[in-house]
Design a protein around this nucleic acid. Structure first.
Length: 546
RNA sequence: GCGCCUAUAGCUCAGUAGGAUAGAGCAACGGAUUUCUAAUCCGUCGGUCGCAGGUUCAAAUCCUGCUAGGCGCGCCA
């Protein structure tokens, strides 16, 4: 028995009470404030508008006619709330299904829709920094969540390996490479300055010696760019693995040139009628789709712009069969949203094909002062440094805990301090505690015999009911999170669940609670199912002991 | 100048398909431990939900106008 079913039952009942109404408003059951009931609804307020009667009298009418077995009691509270206490068998049905399915309980039926989620996608011109960590966790967990919601999800990293930044990156390395070989080297303007540049130059020198010099100067840069890119990608992949973010696919921008797709899509745009030539460049009329200015697709130099190549990439996603793609971008890419959506439509793809999640900038503070982060200057804290400092789980939780709409002030000192009392340990501790009950029970010969052997009517205390209601409502909360892509809610939901579990734990010695033991073990057993689901969703390690 | 994000307890933040007394953690203070993990639990203290109007039976949530901070507005990526 799910909340959805009960909502439907109430809605149908209202329809039969008021057959004159063509469309009964949706009935939403939400957990009641303490004591009023298990769940409540405000549907009488919506009906009041339609029926021109007071919500209170409507609620009374409904409560009188709703004599279904599902409800142990129904009460009306001013000015028109309907409060329900559920019958024990409702919980039994629910727990039975949860117990049988375990974590799978929360997984929706497969929809047969391919969804791609693209995130991190940092240029391979430097290591991942803490900002990339934020995008990484949002994308990773959102991907997990959409799998739960029944989509076939692919997590993809778009490697921007074809633009001018890559060339600059190669030149920056080449400078050190030449210098170390005692050759004359002109300092590169606007060069990348992080220590990793020199490290990579040294590595290349160790691997290849001076053999790269034997060619003309231009091929040298190309060669270094190729080697440098691979070395950088290795580091990036390594960091992501330590962060627990696994991509299904790595898509290289350069492949779009090799395949000829850039040329083909340019033709599509030309034929679309939305382009024109001006100042030797090819322009796209994105103003027709709400943009505030038109965008250049092909430069006067005949090189495609980033804008065009990104359009090509998204066309490629469509051609691979994805019917929904979600891009997770930092706020500095905000200005790219409108042009990108315009391009999607310009290519004749559906408007809602592309969804975009923007996360706000991460500001870094150290000793109370803001640290200006930039790959160019080389002053930034890498994701890897953070993970080494606070640990993988704490780092993931730290990022996940803030709404993507909020600016994240990352205080390094605070992060180190918080690593000690990070709520992630509270969650892991709760999990280990529950596990421990089952283990200790087994040692003492008290084993959980399953929901059918448990008398749920014994679970009458407020914190036991609170747990049950929380289990039941979780499915709705997860749906809401998925609908709004608000993955930061998941840790909050988890912490709240853990709080209820710990209160329950503290109130009873479960293993020595005599005739209550089986019914209470059913809560323990299913709490583990639920907690396990949430921790897997967030990619947090489940430890049996702490 | 235009567009978007943010403003909620001392601090860090939840809470917007309008709903009952606005929540959590940390900090401060006071309690609970012969126990299945005290990395826990219970309680106290703490808020003109940035400001001013408006809509509504009902506004942190919706509308309008302000204020402050951030980000974006390239033939960069």
């Amino acid at each position: 028995m799910k909340i959805d079913n009960l909502e439907k039952i109430i809605q149908d009942a209202i329809q039969s009470i008021y057959p004159g109404i063509s469309k009964i408003p949706d009935v939403l059951l939400v957990p009641s404030p303490e004591g009023f009931g298990d769940f409540s609804t405000t549907v009488s307020f919506d009906l009041a508008r339609i029926l021109h009667k007071s919500p209170f009298s409507i609620a009374e009418e409904i409560s009188k006619h709703l004599n279904f077995p599902y409800f142990a009691s129904i009460s009306v509270a001013k000015p028109g709330y309907l409060n329900f206490f559920f019958a024990p068998f409702v919980y039994r049905d629910f727990l039975q299904e949860l117990e049988e399915k375990g974590e799978k309980y929360f997984y929706k039926e497969r929809r047969g829709i391919k969804v791609q989620i693209e995130f991190v996608s940092a240029n391979p011109t430097g290591p991942l920094h803490v900002g990339n960590g934020r995008g990484g966790i949002i994308g990773d967990v959102l991907g997990n969540l959409l799998k739960v919601e029944g989509f076939d999800v692919i997590k993809e990293y778009y490697v921007n390996d074809a633009g001018s930044k890559m060339n600059l990156f190669a030149k920056s390395i080449a400078y050190y490479y030449m210098k170390k070989l005692g050759k004359k080297a002109e300092p590169v303007e606007e060069a990348y300055r992080g220590a990793y540049i020199e490290d990579i130059a040294t590595e290349i020198l160790n691997d290849y010696g001076d053999s790269l010099l034997n060619e003309e100067s231009h091929p040298l840069i190309d060669k270094i760019q190729e080697i440098g890119k691979e070395k950088m990608m290795c580091r990036i992949k390594d960091s992501l693995e330590k962060f627990g973010v696994a991509f299904d696919s790595w898509f290289y921008e350069s492949s779009l040139y090799f395949s000829g797709e850039v040329g083909r899509v340019t033709e599509i745009f030309k034929k679309s009628g939305y382009t024109y030539e001006k100042d030797n460049a090819l322009w796209f009329q994105s103003t027709l789709f709400g943009d505030d200015k038109d965008r250049v697709l092909v430069r006067g130099t005949e090189e495609p712009t980033y804008t065009l190549v990104d359009a090509v990439y998204h066309k490629n996603k469509w051609d691979r069969g994805f019917r929904k793609v979600i891009d997770v971008w930092g706020a500095d890419h905000f200005g790219h949203i409108t042009p990108m959506k315009a391009l999607i439509q310009g290519m004749g793809l559906p408007k809602d094909f592309l969804g975009i999640v923007i996360y706000q900038i991460v500001h870094l503070f150290e000793d109370g002062k803001e640290v200006m982060m930039s790959k160019h200057s080389g002053t930034f804290v890498t994701l890897e440094e953070l993970i080494n400092e606070v640990g993988r789980d704490a780092a993931r939780f730290f990022f996940l805990l803030k709404s993507s709409d909020t600016h994240l002030n990352f205080d390094i000192d605070l992060a180190k301090r918080e690593s000690i009392d990070n709520p992630v340990y509270y969650v892991q501790y709760t999990y280990a505690r529950l596990k421990s009950i089952l283990i200790k029970g087994k040692e003492r010969g008290i084993q959980y015999r399953g929901i059918n052997k448990a008398d749920l009517s014994l679970l009458g205390s407020s914190n036991e009911k609170a747990l049950l209601n929380h289990f039941m409502y979780l499915e709705k909360e997860i749906e809401n999170v998925a609908r709004k892509y608000s993955v930061h809610r998941i840790p909050f939901i988890t912490i709240e669940l853990c709080k209820r579990i710990n209160t329950f734990y503290q109130n009873y010695n479960i293993l020595s609670s005599e005739r209550y033991v089986q019914s209470r073990l059913s809560l323990v057993y299913n709490a583990l199912n639920v907690l396990s689901f949430l921790m897997d969703l967030m990619g947090i390690e489940k430890k049996e002991g702490m």
